[in-house]
Amino acid sequence: MKINSVILMLLALNVFIPAALGLSFSLEPQPELGQLRDFKGSELCQVAENSKHYLQSQGQDTFAVHPGKQINDQITLKRVEHTLAFICQTYREDVRAKRQSRLHDKAFLKQHFEFVRWRPDKETAAKIAGKSTNESKARMLNNIPDEEIFLTKYYTKLLDGSPVKTEHYDQALYALPKDEQGLSLAQAEQQKEHLTRFRFTRQQIIAGALVNDKLAKPLVWLTEEALHDVLLQGTGVLKVDGKIRYFNVHRNNGITYDYTIGKREQPRYWYFVETPEIMGYGQDQSSKIAIKPQVTFAGNIADLGVGKLIMVSYRDNKGQVSRLGILADQGGAFDNNLFQLDLLVDSYRGWSDYHSHNGHLPDYARAWILLLK
């Protein structure tokens, strides 16, 4: 009775209660925000519009198309769609009126949105840290503050590649194996015991498992180190014969990502497809959401639902910053992970290039899910 009474009282106060009764999400009437910067309203609108289209056209994807399993039933899909539509409405009205973007105005955002504060699931983070063989990762997971999520950053790797195999470029990004061409994801799942995609680990494919019998078509060739980077990031931006080409993950070998081990040890392997731009979440390649740097978050879509408008706030070398983005991407690291978001920053050659542009960004930030009032 006491627990039920507490729940009823919290519902009366409009508090959001996750399924596990951990108070990870709650309305915050007067959030303290910083200067709204480091994102473009035009690109936020593009990702919002692409995400709204996914919600409206892919209702069969119950993994991602839902109001949010870890928040509560006050959020509906229609409300999420209206929130995304309002982003573009506001951006376009401001452009037509030739005025400064109201998406960068704290008072405007507080007037039109409810802010649902997200506090991290530190218990799960600590369990993962205890199993991790990476000391740095374990330390960062153990140091997640009570009031802030773990804010990581990801980028698309700028790489060189070759249209043919060479001594230097000796690893391929493979298209879906030939025995799966033309099969839908559902059809492939029904036949998985007989399909090439599910037969090999990453290490076996690197060793040449697909080569001799030509089981899959190589899309482009790159170095082994570059291959591990692209498999980790999910997208490769490759300069091939002087031309920039984009490659995105398509389907994997069915092995779960292991958060506790490094990228080279991961048995999970992805097959790729060439795309015209950077793509985020999608149940299959034809439905993936086109995304943009600085306004896209990857996260736990299974629990939060795709298309959530999210604000993060943190202090950098110029002061307190708040910024908006859309949850439109995911990754294996976010399975059962409600303590982390991954911000898509840009495309870079490597760590030094990335760090010179993003070294000022912190590891933790306050976070809110925004919903149109």
Results as ranks from 00 to 15, higher is better:
A64G: 06
Q89I: 08
L103D: 03
V6D: 07
F297T: 03
L13E: 13
E147Y: 13
N72C: 13
Q70T: 15
A138I: 00
Y281W: 03
K263I: 11
A298H: 02
D121S: 04
R139E: 11
Y257I: 02
A125K: 02
K217N: 12
A328Y: 00
G234M: 00
Y348M: 04
R37L: 08
W270S: 13
K127R: 09
S286A: 15
Q233E: 14
E180P: 02
V80N: 13
Q233A: 15
H104M: 09
D258Y: 09
D94Q: 01
L23Y: 07
Q89M: 09
G299C: 05
K98N: 12
S57W: 04
S101Q: 08
R264Q: 14
L185F: 09
E93A: 15
F16G: 06
Y314G: 08
N212G: 15
G254Q: 02
Q340W: 00
K69L: 14
L141G: 15
A85C: 09
Q190P: 09
H355M: 15
S287K: 11
H66F: 08
K40L: 10
G130Q: 11
R102T: 05
V273G: 15
T260A: 12
I7T: 03
I289Y: 01
I291N: 04
L8M: 11
V95D: 13
P362E: 06
F198Y: 12
P29K: 09
